[in-house]
């Protein structure tokens, strides 16, 4: 996941910074393209080019076995995707995953950050504990959680039986619970990112606000609810949208933990795309599925832009 939010660290002496667009720097510098060439060449070759090719190939019966685009297919690939049950179920599983992971990833991360921020000592320890899993490779976290979810001897069976849940053949081998298992592993894996964003947001809230609230007799819980939560609204918005986009492109942990199974009960969009492209060798159909996934992500990104724009507008007014 590569994402960026609008704030960027300032170098020393940033106060003296001046927009280079002003005054003397206005003259045109033709050598600019020499600086840009390496990036732009890679950008065209490995981003823009493949993107265009993907759109074109989605209208052809392209395959890996023969060279070229193959026979023209019109909208057949798209029609096929819309008619395929496993395409819709892959989208549904993605939505399911989003619904399972987003609320805990927002709420638990928030609780972790607030409590860590208030902890009197040992903050470094809590930061380490909550953040460490985030840097682990998907291969590592999948191995660990498959082991934890092992029926009977796995660590998960201890609290699960305590809670009266039937462990059965293991959470990952039951079509009804496999996605929950993947969601739990993912929450554990990625929460550190949200935790750090919240922690940074908390640091920017002036303490005077809490003091004023305390003077007015607000309890700590009221302070959190009336001061912290509203002031972190922007962070929460960012966290939710990044999480939704991250959910749309999950693949690693699903492939490594269940390989989409049992049956196709955990198959997600990228899983379907890789199977179509590299097992069935149907590049054209897989391109159509990729284009559809791309359009979904595009719509969400545009919504995010509108929301950001609207909230900045609101802030400017107030």
């Amino acid at each position: 996941m590569t994402t960026t939010s609008p704030t960027v660290p300032r170098p020393a002496g940033a106060q003296a910074a001046r927009r280079p667009s002003g005054g003397k720097t206005r003259r045109r510098t033709p050598q600019a393209w020499l600086f840009l060439a390496p990036f732009v060449i890679f950008y065209l070759a490995f981003m823009v080019g493949p993107m265009i090719w993907m759109f074109v190939a989605s209208f052809f019966h392209t395959s890996t076995v023969e060279s070229g685009l193959g026979q023209f297919a019109g909208v057949e690939n798209y029609a096929e995707m819309f008619a395929r049950e496993d395409f819709w179920s892959a989208l549904w599983h993605t939505l399911q995953f989003t619904l399972y992971t987003v609320p805990p990833l927002v709420i638990i991360a928030f609780v972790m950050a607030v409590l860590t921020n208030r902890a009197v000592r040992g903050q470094w320890f809590f930061r380490l504990a909550f953040f460490l899993p985030f840097i682990l490779p998907s291969a590592t976290i999948s191995l660990i959680w498959v082991f934890i979810f092992t029926p009977k001897t796995g660590l998960w069976s201890l609290p699960a039986t305590r809670l009266g849940l039937d462990v059965g053949n293991g959470i990952l081998s039951d079509p009804r619970t496999a996605m929950i298992g993947i969601a739990i592993a993912t929450i554990w894996w990625t929460i550190g990112f949200n935790f750090v964003l919240y922690l940074a947001g908390l640091q920017e809230i002036p303490r005077e606000l809490y003091e004023a609230a305390a003077v007015d007799g607000a309890t700590p819980l009221q302070q959190i609810w009336k001061v912290t939560v509203p002031l972190l609204n922007r962070t929460t918005g960012l966290v939710i949208l990044l999480q939704i986009i991250a959910s749309l492109k999950i693949f690693d942990q699903v492939y490594l933990m269940t390989n989409g199974g049992p049956g196709v009960s955990t198959q997600v969009a990228l899983g379907l795309i890789t199977v179509t492209a590299f097992t069935d060798n149907r590049i054209g159909a897989a391109s159509a599925a990729s284009v559809l996934l791309f359009l979904i992500i595009l719509v969400i990104a545009i919504i995010q832009q509108i929301v950001t724009w609207a909230s900045t507008k609101r802030e400017e007014v107030s």
Partner: peptide, 22 residues
Amino acid sequence: IVASIMIPGQILIVPLFHLMLN
């Protein structure tokens, strides 16, 4: 460049593989 920040590279695996093949 700003617009492509939101596009996850994973979307492009199919055309990229085809490109690598060629």
